[in-house]
Design a protein around this nucleic acid. Structure first.
Length: 199
DNA sequence: GCGACAG
DNA sequence: ATCTTGTCGC
C-alpha cells in the first residue's frame, strides 16, 4: 500500500471499523426498510434508494459521474457517495438500510455497508452476491462468516449477509433466513432501468 | 512469487 | 459492475 491515497483510505477504514456499533435492532419488528444499489453505464453511476414503508415502495434515483475505479476492498469510495445522496430522501424514515456489498466481512471490517452505517449513524446490513473475505464455518446448520476470528455474518445459499452497523448477528440471521431480500431485487432492477433510460 | 479479489 | 450467444436444467 504505497499509494498515498489508498494508504489514506486504509486509515479511514480503520477509523470507521473502530466506531462500528454492534447492538440488537430486532429486524423481525422492523417494517420500514431501505435498500441501496448502483448500476453503471460508462463513467456514469445510477444510484437508487428504495423505501418500503410497510405498505408499498417508493424510490429515488441519483445520477452522477463516477471518478474512482473499482478496487477490491475500496468499493466504498466509488459507490458510497452516490448511495448516500440517493438515501437522503428517506434517511430519517428508514429503520434499517440494506446495502449491496459487504459490511464487517471485509479485511479491515470496513465494507461499504459499515462505512455508510457509521457515517450516517444508522442501522445497516450488507448483502453481497459473492465472497470477498473471511473464513466460513458451519455450526448448527448455519454457515457463519468469520473476519479475524469473529462471527460477523452468515452465508445463506449463494449470498453473504454481514453486520453493517447498529445491528447484531441475530438481526443478520433473521434477515438471512428469508433469503435474498425482495427490496434489493427491486433496487437492482430500478438502477438498471434508470441506466437504460438515460442512454 | 502466487492466488484471491464486494461492485 | 458491464460486455454478450448459445445452451444446460428445472
Amino acid at each position: 500500500m504505497e499509494d498515498p491515497l489508498l494508504n489514506f483510505l486504509v486509515k479511514f477504514q480503520s477509523l470507521v471499523a473502530r466506531n462500528v456499533v454492534i447492538s440488537h435492532l430486532g429486524v423481525e419488528n422492523v417494517n420500514k426498510i431501505c435498500a441501496l444499489d448502483v448500476a453503471y453505464k460508462g463513467n456514469k453511476g445510477y444510484a437508487v434508494a428504495v423505501y418500503f414503508d410497510g405498505q408499498g415502495y417508493d424510490h429515488n434515483v441519483v445520477i452522477d459521474e463516477v471518478k474512482f475505479p473499482y478496487i477490491p476492498t475500496f468499493l466504498f469510495i466509488r459507490e458510497a457517495p452516490l448511495m448516500i445522496k440517493a438515501l437522503e430522501k428517506y434517511q430519517d424514515q428508514c429503520q434499517l438500510t440494506l446495502i449491496d456489498g459487504h459490511g464487517l466481512a471485509h479485511p479491515r471490517k470496513s465494507g461499504i455497508a459499515t462505512v455508510i452505517g457509521v457515517l450516517l449513524d444508522i442501522p445497516t446490513i450488507g448483502v453481497a452476491k459473492s465472497r470477498l473475505f473471511g473464513e466460513e464455518v458451519k455450526e448448527d446448520s448455519e454457515i457463519y462468516i468469520l473476519a479475524h476470528g469473529e462471527k460477523v455474518g452468515i452465508k445463506k445459499g449463494k449470498f453473504y449477509f454481514s453486520i453493517g452497523n447498529k445491528v447484531d448477528l441475530n438481526d443478520v440471521k433473521v434477515l438471512a433466513r428469508k433469503g435474498y431480500p425482495e427490496i434489493l431485487k427491486l433496487a437492482d432492477k430500478l438502477s438498471k432501468e434508470a441506466k437504460g433510460k438515460n442512454s
